[in-house]
């Protein structure tokens, strides 16, 4: 469904007369998402996971590499020819409060993609919007409300209604529940799960919340500083993580129960700046197992098992120890 080949996104944030400053947000990543799959992209802030999502929908320009949607290369599709792409792939954003235009009522907000892409107008348009609201579990009474009158969960439902208005195949969900309370998050996650199986949607789910990812997604890719360091079936990665970063990340998440996970040794230091990523393996500055080779040579992206890829020189040794 979606294929990212060696995708890089760099942002030029140079200020006049201060030399060149380039943020290497995404640095040569490869990811294949099959039809009907729910794939998670996890990482901390600055890992570039949101940029990947935006690049996949051509909301930011790619520096290098290719994006294939349904086998069609959309990397350099011009503005005017992006309409079919917009019908096929839609996005749900993190903060539902700012993702809805405060001056538009719910009817107008949800109708926007329909106005842009279909000939539906007037009563027929209203009817379709009511239909969409019913799918996401909202009643028609919300039609003429404005976003500030809705709760966070209701707003996110409206955003989802808007995203599925054109029956897209691919939904990019950028931290859709991180602004919500847990009881509401659970409702939205449950709903997304049913939505995915009912409509046969493909999800690219971007999140920093590992627990949410484990619940919703079948495959997971872990990003660190613009690179994917580990990818595989969710259960494999969560139970037998091979990359030291994945291991640290998993052990850093506190469990909602009285006994905490063992082997809890927090990573030292901060995430380096994507302006100046470290040489070699970008994780070597914080890796408890770093050796000489890690500083000099970037690890290759290789398969440990058919569906378990990792970018670490010593993945096997670490697993053995």
């Amino acid at each position: 469904m979606l294929e990212l080949r060696n995708l890089s996104v760099h942002f030029d944030v140079s200020k006049r007369g201060k030399g060149k400053t380039i943020v290497r947000a995404v640095n040569g990543i490869n990811l294949n998402i099959g039809r009907g799959e729910a794939v998670a992209l996890v990482g901390e802030s600055g890992s570039g996971k949101s940029t990947v999502g935006k690049a996949a929908l051509r909301l930011v320009d790619t520096t290098d590499g290719h994006i294939l949607l349904d086998g069609v290369d959309i990397t350099h599709l011009e503005r005017g020819r992006q309409m079919p792409l917009r019908r096929k792939a839609q996005m749900v954003f993190q903060d539902p409060h700012s993702a809805l235009n405060p001056r538009m009522n719910i009817l107008r907000s949800v109708a926007e993609p329909l106005i842009l892409h279909t000939a539906l107008r007037g009563q027929a348009l209203t009817r379709r919007v009511i239909e969409l609201l019913e799918i996401v579990g909202l009643q028609a009474q919300f039609l003429y409300r404005y976003q500030h009158e809705l709760s966070g969960g209701q707003k996110q439902r409206v955003c989802i209604a808007r995203a599925i208005a054109l029956n897209p195949d691919l939904l990019v969900l950028d931290e859709p529940t991180s602004a919500l309370d847990v009881s509401v998050q659970a409702q939205i996650l449950e709903f997304l799960k049913t939505l995915q199986s009912d409509l046969g949607l493909t999800f690219l789910f971007i999140s920093h919340n590992l627990a949410v990812v484990r619940y919703l997604c079948s495959r997971v890719a872990v990003m660190y500083l613009g690179r994917i360091v580990e990818e595989g079936a969710t259960e494999t990665v969560f139970t037998t993580p091979k990359h030291p970063y994945t291991q640290a990340l998993l052990s850093a998440v506190p469990w909602p129960e009285a006994t905490q996970p063992k082997g809890h040794a927090p990573l030292v230091g901060d995430i380096p700046s994507p302006v100046n990523p470290p040489s070699g393996c970008s994780f070597h500055t914080r890796c408890p197992f770093a050796r000489e080779r890690c500083r000099a040579e970037a690890p290759t992206w290789r398969a440990l098992a058919p569906d378990h890829l990792v970018a670490c020189h010593f993945a096997e040794d670490l697993a053995a120890s």
Binding site: K54, L57, L59, R79, Q82, M83, R86, R87, Q90, M91, F93, Q94, D95, S98, A99, L100, N101, P102, R103, M104, E112, P113, L116, H117, C159, R162
Partner: peptide, 27 residues
């Protein structure tokens, strides 16, 4: 604002974003 990104992701052109999405918020 994210709703401008959202409008772009739905395929709204620049003119539409400026006059339909941004202008009412400048009033």
């Amino acid at each position: 604002e994210i709703y401008v990104d959202a409008a772009r992701s739905m395929g709204a052109g620049s003119l539409r974003i400026v006059f339909v999405h941004l202008l009412p918020n400048c009033t």
